[in-house]
């Protein structure tokens, strides 16, 4: 049995809220293998985004352990986590999260530059073309539509070929037609690169695309089903 890419052991997350403590996640145990495509499902307030944040090293669990490629990340300092994310994690967000003062091309370039890769420029051009924005590289996010911005975000996420890619409601702000094309592009890029993809969504239709569906309710894993 190969070491899982991502492992959560007894992970809980509590947050102070208006004087009380809210338990968002309650003793979660999860194991994601390399190359898997998993979707995390649940109603709003079930703790999906929080779980994603813990997996990505964007947040720290109140209790429990998080291991990425066998390495415990729950005790790392902020800067160590930053360096880790640089090399190992790609992101796609519901609100695109592009840097507004960078052009589309510069946005895609940034993670490549951070890892100091040679030929970053060529790769950025290649990626933009792959998402159909070869001609729009010099435009700023404010000059792009929602769907186009998300495609830039996709290009950015896959650029450094990270072992893990996390997507948080990637089609949440898009109309159904645009959303569908984004999902197509996401799935295509994933199968080309073999990246492990964890996707958070509330939409069962979107979740159906994944090999594995993890259902969350009230901070606990309710169901964990794999497609045959």
């Amino acid at each position: 049995m190969r070491t899982p890419l991502l492992e959560l052991r007894g992970v809980s997350k509590e947050l102070p809220s208006g004087g009380r403590t809210l338990r968002i996640l309650d003793a979660i145990d999860l194991s994601i293998a390399a190359g898997e495509f998993a979707a995390i499902l649940g109603p709003s307030g079930s703790g999906k985004s929080t779980l994603l944040g813990l997996m990505a090293g964007l947040d720290r669990p109140t209790r429990g352990e998080v291991l990425l490629e066998g390495e415990p990340i729950h005790g790392m300092t902020e800067d160590e986590l930053a360096l880790l994310r640089r090399r190992k994690v790609g992101f796609v967000f519901q609100s695109y999260q592009l840097l507004s003062n960078l052009t589309a091309r510069e946005n895609v370039l940034l993670p490549l530059e951070l890892t100091g890769q040679a030929g970053a420029g060529a790769r950025a051009t290649e990626l933009l073309a792959a998402v159909g924005l070869g001609e729009r590289g010099h435009h700023y996010p404010s000059q792009l539509s929602g769907g186009e911005q998300q495609r830039v975000a996709l290009a950015r996420a896959f650029g450094t070929r990270p072992p893990l890619l996390l997507a948080d409601e990637p089609t949440g702000n898009l109309d159904s037609a645009t959303g569908a094309s984004i999902l197509d592009a996401l799935v295509r890029l994933r199968s080309e690169s073999g990246t492990t993809l964890i996707l958070v969504t509330h939409d069962p239709a979107v979740a159906a695309l994944a090999d594995r569906r993890i259902h969350l309710r009230d901070g606990k894993v309710e169901r964990d089903e794999t497609s045959s």
Binding site: L83, Q97, N101, P111
Partner: peptide, 15 residues
């Protein structure tokens, strides 16, 4: 703040 969060997310250290 938002831009800074993105940068940190992408792996820029606070220093």
């Amino acid at each position: 703040l938002d831009a800074l969060a993105i940068l940190r997310c992408l792996g820029v250290t606070s220093r």
